[in-house]
């Protein structure tokens, strides 16, 4: 049986049926297309990397994704599917889904990658080398910036601003859902002050840690 991981917006759901693993869109009504939150705030870009996606059971890897890195890219005009395939899997009843939110530090320290890591994808800093692990852009009336835009480009792989986050989510049973709660992340961001992050710094680390806590199993 082919194992796959399907990621969609928003809130993302994961179905875990035996050897099949899917991220898919939550029907959470607080998010609509084009992406809008409850208020007047809108999101024009939401992209992040996930790396080294695997499921472990009793400290053994029982499933791993085909690629080392995926760029999850949510288009503002439609809820895009990001299908992630993995190796053949055996029937699984429980395990721990592990992945890195962002590009893992070892890969970042290397040179330029291909595919999802190609710098033309807009997730590589040019003035200071390194991947942007998480990009969130949009418009909010709270932002006293040009055209009320906010731009959070969260990255950095060197001390003291390492931003990639290790995520572990226990999953069990035949069907499970993993949700990325964008509203929760937005609630940690004070857009009046934190509207522009373009380099590795303390805030970038803080918001990546916040984003880490926004993934959960339902």
């Amino acid at each position: 049986m082919r194992t796959s991981l399907l990621v969609l917006f928003g809130a993302t759901t994961l179905t875990f049926t035996k050897a099949q693993l899917n991220f898919s869109l939550s029907t959470d009504s607080s998010v609509s297309v084009p992406l809008r939150l409850d208020s007047q705030d809108s999101i024009s870009a939401l992209r992040f990397y996930i790396s080294n996606v695997r499921i472990e059971h009793e400290r053994k890897i029982v499933w791993s994704a085909e690629q080392e890195h995926y760029l999850i890219d949510f288009n503002q005009d439609h809820l895009q599917s990001n299908n992630i395939s993995g190796q053949e899997g055996s029937d699984l009843k429980e395990g721990v889904l592990k992945f890195v939110l962002g590009v893992d530090d070892n890969t970042s320290a290397q040179g330029i990658g291909e595919g999802p890591l190609d710098p033309i994808r807009g997730m590589y800093w040019t003035w200071q080398s390194g991947y942007i692990n998480f990009k969130l852009e949009g418009v909010s009336n709270q932002c006293r910036t040009r055209k009320n835009k906010f731009q959070l480009h969260l990255g950095g792989f060197q001390k003291p601003y390492r931003t990639a986050q290790n995520i572990e989510l226990k999953i069990s049973g035949e069907q499970k859902t993993v949700v990325f709660n964008l509203k929760k992340l937005m609630s940690t961001i004070n857009l009046k002050e934190d509207h522009t992050i373009m380099s590795p710094n303390e805030k970038a680390v803080f918001f990546m840690e916040s984003a880490k806590s926004c993934f959960y199993v339902q």
Binding site: I112, Q128, S129
Partner: peptide, 25 residues
Amino acid sequence: GATHHIDAQALAPLHDPKEMGSSME
């Protein structure tokens, strides 16, 4: 030391609006 790897270095002048004013694309 803004560039940590030689493969990435050329991206900086390529994209800088005061240097080459272009992009990889």
